[in-house]
Simulated scan of single mutants.
Amino acid sequence: MRVWAVANQKGGVGKTTTSIALAGLLADAGKRVLLVDLDPHGSMTSYFGHDPDSLEHGVFDLFQHQGEVPSGLPRQLLVKTSHERIHLLPASTVLATLERQSPGQSGLGLVVAKALAQLWQDFDHAIIDSPPLLGVLMVNALAASQHLVIPVQTEFLAVKGLERMVSTLAMINRSRRQALPYTIVPTLFDRRTQASMSTLRLLRSSYPEHLWPAYVPVDTRLRDASRAGQVPSQFDGGSRGVLAYRALLKHLLGQQAAQVA
């Protein structure tokens, strides 16, 4: 199983859309895909028709065993999605209380990695949707992943979030045996606006080694797919957004192959 985390320390940059779009394209290609929702807002969980406010079981259950994950628990927590090859570890809003509980517990940083280890043979890919703040949940996402995808909305404030994210990654890498590779993905690009154009130029000059050279454009069909609860590639496979995510997936798989080699 290959594990990707999607994270940025700013909300509204397209993390959930990116996670689901990539998962859908992988599943369309015959891959078994696991989505992990680590955001207490539960946007990914809601996307597939599950209510984070009333969910009885989910990712939160994994953190209730002093840093250990009971055998079989991750499989029991899986729920189905609108795509037959995608399963979800859902989030409930109670995840928001985890940060208050965590100071009294040790070993919580590797809970998700331990859960994925139990599902390793069941899936080809896992994609983790992270919360937009540094804490136990983001640390879990980064610790469990083999590649980090950082969506960055093409506007100035999102670049500030990227700077914080890169700083956080540098801190996390000090405790990893191998630095976590990452790809920056410009999102919500609108070539009609000066903000998008100037931000894209700034990203290209500041992060040339890590930036995906293309971008995901503003596309209302992505929002329509969310409203329908379908992965974007099944809702409208020819939309501009899906074509962009298809190109991004090809880029990420190429990087993955190079890392394995």
Results as ranks from 00 to 15, higher is better:
residue 211 L to E: 12
residue 27 A to Q: 06
residue 214 A to M: 10
residue 181 P to H: 04
residue 151 P to C: 08
residue 106 S to G: 15
residue 9 Q to S: 01
residue 161 G to E: 00
residue 34 L to S: 00
residue 96 A to H: 08
residue 90 P to F: 02
residue 128 I to C: 10
residue 197 M to S: 06
residue 189 F to D: 01
residue 147 H to G: 13
residue 201 R to A: 14
residue 173 N to Y: 06
residue 85 R to C: 01
residue 2 R to W: 09
residue 148 L to K: 14
residue 70 P to T: 08
residue 247 A to M: 05
residue 142 L to N: 11
residue 62 L to T: 00
residue 166 V to G: 03
residue 61 D to Q: 06
residue 21 A to Y: 09
residue 28 D to W: 04
residue 221 R to S: 04
residue 109 G to Q: 08
residue 79 V to G: 06
residue 44 M to W: 12
residue 106 S to Y: 04
residue 193 T to H: 00
residue 242 V to I: 05
residue 172 I to T: 06
residue 221 R to N: 09
residue 224 D to V: 05
residue 230 Q to E: 05
residue 60 F to V: 01
residue 116 L to G: 06
residue 223 R to H: 07
residue 188 L to S: 03
residue 171 M to Y: 00
residue 69 V to R: 01
residue 102 S to E: 15
residue 57 H to N: 13
residue 30 G to C: 10
residue 5 A to W: 01
residue 222 L to S: 01
residue 168 T to S: 13
residue 73 L to S: 02
residue 27 A to F: 11
residue 196 S to A: 13
residue 44 M to R: 07
residue 212 W to F: 11
residue 218 V to L: 14
residue 212 W to R: 13
residue 95 L to C: 12
residue 111 V to E: 09
residue 86 I to M: 00
residue 183 T to P: 06
residue 10 K to V: 10
residue 228 A to G: 02
residue 243 L to C: 09
residue 24 G to E: 07
residue 58 G to Y: 01
residue 233 S to A: 08
residue 6 V to R: 08
residue 46 S to P: 00
residue 41 H to G: 02
residue 254 G to M: 03
residue 219 D to E: 11
residue 65 H to W: 15
residue 142 L to P: 10
residue 113 A to R: 13
residue 5 A to I: 05
residue 43 S to M: 02
residue 85 R to V: 02
residue 159 V to P: 05
residue 27 A to I: 02
residue 97 T to N: 11
residue 207 Y to E: 07
residue 159 V to Y: 11
residue 67 G to I: 04
residue 138 M to S: 10
residue 165 M to Y: 01
residue 138 M to V: 12
residue 120 W to T: 09
residue 203 L to G: 08
residue 18 T to D: 02
residue 197 M to Q: 14
residue 108 L to D: 13
residue 145 S to Y: 05
residue 5 A to E: 07
residue 75 R to Y: 08
residue 38 L to M: 07
residue 221 R to M: 09
residue 110 L to M: 14
residue 44 M to C: 15
residue 151 P to A: 08
residue 178 Q to K: 11
residue 232 P to Y: 05
residue 180 L to A: 05
residue 48 F to H: 02
residue 148 L to P: 13
residue 4 W to Q: 13
residue 247 A to E: 14
residue 126 A to R: 04
residue 84 E to H: 14
residue 16 T to D: 12
residue 16 T to R: 05
residue 105 Q to M: 09
residue 204 R to E: 13
residue 99 E to I: 02
residue 179 A to T: 15
residue 144 A to C: 04
residue 69 V to K: 04
residue 163 E to R: 15
residue 169 L to H: 08
residue 90 P to H: 06
residue 97 T to C: 12
residue 105 Q to V: 12
residue 218 V to I: 08
